[in-house]
Design a protein around this nucleic acid. Structure first.
Lengths: 169, 169
DNA sequence: TATTGTTATACTCTATAACTATA
DNA sequence: TATAGTTATAGAGTATAACAATA
């Protein structure tokens, strides 16, 4: 691997790929570095807001995340673990505590008696909605953008997630 | 601030504030909702990448975060707690484990004998650099943006963090 | 008296392994 | 036998309260 430093032209094959040279430039460009740092700050802020919102309902972050998931669609314990990217054994405790709070209930799955479907109660749905609205800090600045800017931002976010094939140069 | 949204004249006080009506619109506009969801995904992805990178060095997320902090500047235990937004008592254990791994050391503060300054070792600095580079997934798509787009993105991120006074319409 | 760092304690989240009841 | 959920256990992060050393 021959990472290239801009302003140091080299007769080697270092910049045979445009992507590689762009990546190298992004490691020194002050504007890009600032944006990367801002993204890090937004990520930290996002988590912080979420934890605070969860705390206001006397929930932990993990409990709030599970409740948010179930508010979209009831699902088996196993599937919750997949969504959370954790071991299934952990979900037992988290759902236990949500159930003790009356925010979630376990239902049998008619199709497979091994499966337990976790579903939000009425109160759980209300709490989940409140939690979702606590992320307004991310939405409000978006409303100030033009439609073209929002579309551009959507494209960027998709590329960051690898959902979009990067256009060939 | 009583700017009015044109096209929706209402005798009530519902849209007496432009910001309020923009916020309301952002809760129903499909494009905005999609972008909000994408931001959530990027946040999750960012954390995931960080945890994976930490794991490759047999570190937990909290340990990696502290090491990253100290790699910028040695600091008292108390200050680490402020940065992490946690209680000072927790920092003791985290730094204990980093110290046991030889990545961090505690030094006396000449100016105040109550204070212990946590500082990275040589190996700690190398590890911190490696961790920082693992966030490339966020930087690479940025390199594909034009300078104007990056500046626009920077403005958006600053607004999300409340670092920028929103421009009057 | 106030502050810094630590210890002790309790709770939650996490992974691993073993167990049960179904399939 | 294979899978879904649980239990048991241990390590780590977190908040709270109490403590020693220093200011």
């Amino acid at each position: 691997m021959v990472t290239h430093k801009p302003g140091t032209p080299d007769s080697q094959a270092a910049d045979s790929q445009a992507a590689e040279s762009r990546a190298a430039a992004s490691r020194t460009d002050p504007l890009t570095l600032e944006v990367v740092e801002l993204i890090g700050s937004v990520v930290a802020r996002y988590y912080e807001e979420y934890e605070i919102a969860a705390g206001k309902h006397a929930l932990t972050g993990a409990q709030a995340r599970v409740l948010g998931l179930l508010s979209l669609e009831p699902m088996p314990m196993r599937r919750i673990a997949q969504k959370l990217k954790c071991e299934p054994s952990n979900v037992t405790g988290i759902v236990d505590r949500l159930e003790a709070r009356g925010l979630v209930e376990r239902r049998p799955d008619p199709a497979d008696r091994r499966v337990k479907l976790a579903a939000p109660t009425e109160e759980g749905l209300v709490t989940a909605r409140s939690l979702r609205e606590s992320l307004d800090f991310a939405r409000e600045p978006l409303a100030e953008l033009s439609r073209a800017e929002r579309i551009s931002l959507r494209g960027l976010l998709r590329r960051m997630l690898g959902q979009d094939a990067p256009a060939a140069p």
